[in-house]
């Protein structure tokens, strides 16, 4: 590069002090890296599989079939649902899979990318962010199947579909917030890796994925509201085929929980990121 074109930006390297939020100016320089890390994740994920990207579709369909087989034998649940159970379960499973996928991949991403973290500088937050974006890619493919199912069951979404992005963003933010926390913790304590499957299993049963939240007794409503996924899944059912009622006060609790998780997750991640290279070794 000729001298005249030389970049003369000054970099100052110092011990960091206090809490830091995102450095947006720097992130702006690195958006290409985020994009290509995401593309790599997507390309690599289903390499050397026969069905390739079709697995994105198969996974929720298989889950849906399992649940419709099992739940069909539980009369109480099926009776309390006013739409075809397969559709009901699928609409719950697609967002749940996104949520679980984000947490699963982000919590392990820094350890998996130790080679990068140890050799190259870039904003570390891009690693969990790209893991999250590649999970969103799966989600959007799942959404296409969901749309086909809506057509098949002749469920036309009304004006409420305008709220769909709100729920998707809310869910992504919650998952990313948790992902930031877990990924940073996982560099130091690999216990995280062992806990995550149980956490997700528990969370799955605690969320109205294969059952309607109406079967939960009234007195537990506040606890349910603390789980953003319950609001999100119910909300998505409401936006897509007006199942259930519009979200009430519980929704505001969910939003608060989601944002608190997300913001604290970023602060935590940014605070711990200086130690990543030390903990991940060579």
């Amino acid at each position: 590069m000729p001298l005249s074109e030389k970049n003369t930006r000054k970099t100052i390297i110092e011990p960091s002090k206090g809490l830091r939020f995102l450095n947006f100016r720097e992130l702006n320089d690195y958006w290409e890296l985020l994009l290509y890390l995401t593309i790599r994740d997507i390309k690599v994920k289903y390499k050397q599989t026969v069905f390739g990207v079709l697995w994105v579709i198969f996974q929720p369909i298989l889950m849906m079939l399992i649940f419709s087989l099992v739940i069909a034998s539980v009369p109480n649940i099926e009776n309390s649902i006013t739409c075809p159970y397969k559709l009901f379960a699928f609409v719950g499973l697609i967002p749940w899979q996104l949520f679980a996928k984000i947490i699963e991949s982000t919590s392990n991403c820094l350890v998996a990318e130790a080679g990068l973290v140890n050799k190259i500088y870039f904003p570390r937050i891009l690693i969990p962010a790209s893991a999250c974006l590649s999970a969103l890619f799966d989600f959007f493919i799942g959404c296409i199947i969901l749309a086909l199912m809506l057509v098949y069951y002749k469920q036309a979404p009304g004006w409420t579909i305008l709220f769909l992005p709100v729920f998707i963003i809310l869910m992504t933010i919650t998952a990313m917030g948790i992902g930031f926390w877990l990924s940073a913790l996982n560099t130091e304590y690999r216990d995280v890796k062992c806990i995550v499957p149980f956490l997700l299993q528990f969370w799955f049963f605690a969320s109205p994925v294969f059952y309607p939240s109406s079967i939960i007794p009234e007195k537990f409503r506040f606890i349910v509201a603390l789980n953003p996924m319950s609001g999100v899944i119910e909300g998505i059912r409401w936006t897509l085929f007006s199942y259930g009622s519009a979200p009430g006060w519980e929704f505001y609790v969910s939003i608060s929980v989601a944002f608190i998780t997300f913001i604290t997750g970023i602060y935590w991640f940014r605070w711990r990121e200086k130690t990543f290279a030390d903990h991940l070794g060579n």
Binding site: K6, T11, I12, I13, P15, K119, A277
Partner: peptide
């Protein structure tokens, strides 16, 4: 190359820093 953070002191560098540590 900003992979690890210093405990004390200060570095000022002008220009893009590229590192080939591997």
């Amino acid at each position: 190359s900003r992979i690890a953070e210093p405990t004390t002191g200060r570095i000022e560098a002008i220009g893009r820093i590229g590192s080939l540590l591997g």
